[in-house]
Computed example of a mutant assay.
Amino acid sequence: MNIPFLDLKAQYQTIRQQVLRSVEQVLESCEFILGPNVSAFEQEIAKYLGVKHAIGVGNGTDALVLILDALGIGPGDEVITTPYTFFATAECVSRLGAKPVFVDIDPTTLTIDPKKLKQAITTRTKAVIPVHIFGRAAEMSAIMDIANRHGLFVVEDACQSMGAEIEGKKLGTFGNAGAFSFFPTKNLGAYGDGGLVVTDDDELAERVRMLRAHGSKVKYHNELIGYNSRLDEMQAAVLRVKLRYLNEWNSRRRQIALEYNKLLKDLPLQLPDPGDKGEHVFHLYTILTDNREELRVYLKSRGVETGVYYPTPLHLQPAYADLGYRKGDFPVSESACERNLSLPMYPELTDEQIHYVAQAVRVFFEERGA
Rank of each mutant, 00 (worst) to 15 (best):
V208C: 15
F5S: 14
K262A: 10
F153D: 01
V155R: 11
Q317V: 07
E352N: 12
G56K: 01
T81N: 14
V197C: 09
I146C: 09
E367C: 01
K327H: 12
G328L: 06
T122A: 12
L152D: 11
L171S: 08
R244M: 06
F86E: 13
I146Y: 06
H280C: 12
V26S: 02
A137H: 02
A98K: 05
V197Q: 13
K277L: 11
Y325M: 08
T185P: 02
V93E: 03
N176Q: 14
E167F: 10
A205L: 08
V26N: 03
M234S: 02
L49I: 08
L171T: 08
F182A: 05
I256C: 07
V198T: 14
R292K: 13
L284P: 01
L64D: 04
S342W: 09
M144K: 11
L267W: 08
F183Q: 09
C159H: 01
P272H: 10
T61I: 04
V361E: 08
E167V: 02
P4I: 07
V128W: 10
K262V: 02
I67Q: 12
Y220Q: 12
L49H: 07
E279N: 13
T123R: 10
A137L: 05
S22K: 11
L263F: 00
V131T: 13
Y84N: 09
P331N: 04
D62I: 13
T286R: 01
T350S: 15
I225A: 12
Y285P: 01
A319M: 06
F180L: 04
L211H: 11
P313G: 10
P318C: 03
D7M: 03
I33Q: 00
K118C: 09
R230Q: 14
L299W: 08
E156H: 01
Y298F: 15
Y260M: 09
A158N: 09
L271C: 04
G178W: 00
A360S: 15
S29Y: 01
G189Q: 09
T289Q: 08
D200A: 11
L288V: 06
R368E: 06
G72T: 10
P347N: 07
T289C: 08
Q255C: 03
F32M: 11
N222Y: 15
L263W: 07
K169C: 02
D104R: 12
L343D: 00
Y245G: 08
L68R: 02
D106M: 09
T185N: 07
D157R: 12
